[in-house]
């Protein structure tokens, strides 16, 4: 069975660094990572967070004007097009 995990993407690397700093200051678990391939073809950084912290993170970002692109809830997905599956491996 596929497992759910949450990743936040940013428009710039600098936004991810600001985000990480604020979450650490507020004792919310965060780990920066390369953007997962299924989310983007960019080679920038994303933040891995606990899905349970979603609301806390969203309100903190709103209060402190911290910018991010999107909050993603990810599962493993499978495509039926065999050739594209092969390319994505």
């Amino acid at each position: 069975m596929s497992e759910k995990y949450c990743v936040i993407t940013f428009d710039t690397v600098q936004q991810s660094l600001v985000f990480e700093k604020h979450l650490i200051e507020n004792e919310i678990a965060v780990k920066l990572m390369p953007v997962p391939r299924q989310l983007s073809s960019s080679c920038g950084t994303a933040a891995y967070v606990d899905c349970k912290d979603k609301e806390k993170i969203q309100s903190l970002c709103k209060e402190s004007s911290i910018l991010f692109d999107e909050f993603h809830e990810l599962y493993q997905d499978k495509k039926n097009m065999w050739f594209l599956n092969h390319l994505k491996k």
């Binding site: 690397v13 660094l17 920066l32 990572m33 390369p34 391939r37 073809s41 960019s42 080679c43 950084t45 390319l87 994505k88």
Partner: peptide, 23 residues
């Protein structure tokens, strides 16, 4: 290169910045 997103600078940058060896 498009599928993998390999970037020589990105690989070393991530090791320094976020301690991640993916790239």
């Amino acid at each position: 290169l498009q599928r993998s997103r390999i970037c020589t600078a990105g690989g070393i940058r991530d090791m320094i910045l976020i301690k991640d060896s993916h790239f």
